[in-house]
């Protein structure tokens, strides 16, 4: 897909996210909108996955450790053909396979059940270690939230990734600067994130988290002998102006006016 096609696709994915979240009157708009390009870089550019065989054992693994961002993942999986797009409109309803947080036993294409923050990265470490042990060539990508890295276990995962020289493992940080109770710095300062991951033994890169080409380049060129950390600079609520940079939109349902305004913005801005 060319750059224009991807831009248009990103907007379409955002519109699907808004539609899904409006219908179920719950869920997390801010953190879903901020990770759209990160997931698109993986699913449209970098990751080796096959919608026809979601369980193919040589596929790359993708772990959305910040599981609450799953509406973005669901929109993309549907677009890639893992399941019908109509399923999206039953997000979070009883008996839908699309759970409030990713469920690997219910949804085709989900590699890891997440939702309890901090745990996905450890599972990703295990998958990367297993690949090494099996002499398999697939790679493992984990997407984290910046609030999420306050969890101590993220640093246990980081330590083990470097210790085992997991150069088949990439952590991608959705660095939107916000969590629930405010900015990262108001709640629990993160300090110099890149310096910390570097000190833990990662190769580190910083990219524009809404630039799919830049993201794809950064995550697809690992360094031999050590895990890769990519800090993706993002905007929480990206694409819907009144949600952007606003922690209040972490997990708030939209009313009818807000929904209409968001949709007008997402559908109206391109090609008239």
């Amino acid at each position: 897909m060319d750059t224009n096609g991807l831009l248009e696709k990103a907007r379409a994915m955002r519109a699907d996210i808004i539609e899904m979240l409006y219908r179920c009157q719950s869920g997390h708009p801010g953190g879903s909108l901020s990770c759209v390009e990160i997931l698109m870089a993986l699913y449209y550019k970098v990751a080796n996955v096959d919608p026809a065989q979601p369980d193919w054992d040589q596929r790359d693994r993708i772990v959305l450790s910040k599981g609450h961002g799953c509406p973005a993942l669901y929109a993309i999986l549907a677009d890639r053909g893992f399941f019908p797009r109509e399923d999206l409109w039953r997000l979070r309803q009883i008996d839908s396979h699309l759970q409030g947080h990713p469920d690997m036993r219910k949804t085709p294409g989900i590699d890891c059940s997440t939702g309890s923050l901090g745990q996905g990265v450890s599972v990703a470490v295990g998958m990367a270690l297993a690949a090494k042990y099996k002499k398999a060539h697939y790679r493992v990508y984990a997407i984290l939230g910046d609030g999420e890295i306050q969890e101590g276990m993220v640093w246990e995962a980081a330590m083990s990734a470097a210790h085992y020289k997991l150069d088949n493992l990439v952590f991608i940080l959705d660095h939107n600067g916000l969590q629930i109770d405010g900015t990262n710095d108001q709640v629990m300062s993160l300090g110099d994130i890149v310096a910390k991951f570097r000190a833990f033994g990662f190769a580190c890169r910083e990219v524009d988290g809404h630039d799919i080409e830049e993201l794809a380049n950064a995550i697809s060129s690992p360094e031999v002998g050590r895990p890769l950390f990519v800090l993706a600079e993002t905007v929480k609520g990206k694409g819907v102006s009144f949600m952007e940079h606003n922690a209040g939109w972490h997990g708030k349902p939209m009313n009818a006016q807000e929904y209409a305004a968001a949709m007008a913005e997402l559908k109206g801005t391109h090609h008239g």
Partner: peptide, 8 residues
């Protein structure tokens, strides 16, 4: 808790 699902 409802919609957040089994993980929560």
């Amino acid at each position: 808790v409802g919609e957040d699902g089994g993980s929560h």
